[in-house]
Design a protein around this nucleic acid. Structure first.
Lengths: 342, 342
DNA sequence: GAGAAAATTGGAAACGTTTCCATTTTCTCC
DNA sequence: GGAGAAAATGGAAACGTTTCCAATTTTCTC
């Protein structure tokens, strides 16, 4: 059984092709009579428009591409989920691609998206440093929304973006620990080469700069975000001669590594060691003791990005590139206490 | 700057439109001279084919749709990730949609996919019971691969599927606990109405049937898979007059609920209570004590499904619907011991 | 070297829409 | 009732490909 085309509908309704199209769409300049006949015929034939053909003509595919390093990462998975939800409301499909942080794949994917005439992209480039990816994006000729990344200097005004206030979060966590009396604090965060890491480090430093006494901080950025790697890094930090009394472990895997290291060294949390982590998965909430954590809404990131993109697509492209900065909250649980007396 | 079309390339190379197309594609029936000229012209003009137009003509969009209840669920996220990887190798894009287990959305999504002429679907229908969704899928006219779900009776031969051996896994876990001497075991699993739950229950029962002594088992299926819900359910189970000495908690959230309930009741793991869970996230591995878990390869599910679909798309559709059954392993860790002496 | 077979080529149709334009119909107002 | 404006309509072009067909050129065979 072949699908009915709009031509079949027009014939069945006894009107011309053009009229049928007009009737099925907006309905501008269409008499009530024709509108009804066409609607009836369409229903009777089970007509379903071919989006491909429509896209070809209107030069708009009704699809949006999402490019992240790893969709399986809960961080991105939730963003994708939320974005998809909002886009679906607007009749858009979401195409996903993960790059594994490979610059070549990033560019290939953008080219592929472009070839398919996707209407816009949501992108979290792997490393802020890769200028070529940014150029490819800028040249793509379609609206691009950046997810929690910083465009390179210069290309600043080009991309609207949805950002998370990692700086504020890290600052809040650090201040909180300083307030509890900690003087030696370590920050473990992945990706110093990407915005989240950079911002967190900046926030950490700023909190230190604002502090009265002169605390000492250590900043460690495990290169790979595997748990084993984080474990070694955490072990190294906690075995140092003057070990920190508090650790800010910003990453699920990193938290896992820190917890294991603490267990290995028989450090009790929070008596010997205070911990602040991220609250993106259940792990922090379920652990005994429950881990105090920085939390932000991934869902909000996805939805805001989708919203921003839809705005652009509606032709609102003349407005200055928007930037949404989403807040980070410190959720107090049981993993922090005053540092142990020496 | 407008994009170069194949017509521009043909003109630049001094050949006809048709020849340019032939040269750019397979290259069948094309003289070396023309092939070279066209390739050169294409490169010079930066020609990139318009997939939309091609799709319209060839009636194949080069895109595959994936329909699951919740992409943010790590279970599906990893499958999506793996499938996308394999599909990309084959030049296919992956479109995702999550249904939130809403039958209406399922059907809408399939209709949408169909309207966009997607070449095939990877689907995990929300509830096996919804016959309408299955009919919609069967009527879609495109290859559909089912992810770990059972088609309704009758429609059995219609869909190739990638299945996980939950039955074998549950059986192994139950036997293991029985072997340790446990006689009262509770199984907590979500979704008795879906294949994973059903199979697990069947495996659990079978292990009991095979057992020498006559153990008693309890089967609990929290309706909603929120942690709070699982917590209440676990609490109820563990407070029963003759409480189980072992719990098989098949779900991340459910594990979290069980752990919290154990803590509430001051039951120590594994001395008072043995636990087997699923190993899909880090949580089981990181917990103290580390949780013995059933584990299977989500990546394999995604890749196998993609592979199967690609086979179909290559026109290998005459073969009998394939079924892949992926193994489940029991990973022994520290959360199981012999039951406490009474 | 002639004829047949094979390979290559150009032109045009087709995929299913939307949209432009010219034409016809309907409406409005005097 | 008629002139002019407005609305509705049909026909055709266009979107950028692939593919069919007929025409042409090349290659082969005797």
């Amino acid at each position: 059984m072949v699908r009915a085309t709009i031509r079949d509908v027009a014939e069945a309704a006894g009107v011309s092709l053009g009229s049928a199209s007009r009737a099925l769409n907006g309905g501008r300049n269409v008499s009530a009579r024709v509108a009804q006949d066409v609607a009836q015929a369409a229903k009777r034939l089970g007509y379903q428009p071919d989006f491909l053909a429509r896209s070809l003509r209107t030069r708009s595919s009704g699809m949006v591409g999402c490019l992240v390093s790893d969709i399986a990462n809960p961080l991105y998975a939730e963003i994708v989920q939320a974005a998809e939800g909002r886009l679906r409301e607007a009749g858009c499909l979401l195409v996903v691609a993960s790059t594994g942080n490979d610059p070549k794949r990033e560019q290939d994917a953008v080219a592929e998206f472009r070839g398919r005439r996707l209407d816009g992209f949501l992108v979290a480039p792997g490393s802020d440093a890769n200028a070529k990816t940014w150029r490819t994006l800028a040249d793509s000729g379609t609206p691009v929304i950046i997810l929690d990344r910083d465009p390179p200097a210069g290309g600043d005004g080009l991309f609207p973006s949805v950002l998370v206030d990692h700086r504020g979060g890290a600052m809040a966590a650090t201040r909180y620990l300083l307030g509890l009396g900690h003087r030696r604090i370590a920050l473990l965060t992945p990706g110093a080469r990407m915005r989240p890491g950079r911002e967190r480090i900046a926030g950490f430093r700023q909190a230190f700069a604002d502090a009265e006494a002169s605390p000492t901080g250590a900043i460690v950025c495990p290169q790979e975000s595997s748990m084993d790697f984080a474990y070694s890094a955490a072990l190294a930090v906690l075995e140092a001669s003057s070990r920190p009394t508090a650790v800010i472990a910003l990453g699920t895997r990193i938290l896992a590594g820190v917890l294991r290291a603490a267990r290995t060294l028989k450090l009790s949390v929070p008596d010997d060691l205070s911990i602040v982590s991220v609250g993106d998965t259940d792990i922090a909430a379920v652990h005994t003791p429950a881990i105090t954590a920085l939390r932000w809404s991934l869902e909000e990131v996805g939805r805001a990005a989708a919203e921003m993109l839809l705005q652009r697509l509606k032709g609102d492209g003349t407005a200055a590139p928007a930037r949404a900065l989403l807040p980070v909250d410190l959720v107090l649980r049981e993993s922090c206490a005053s540092p142990p007396k020496i």
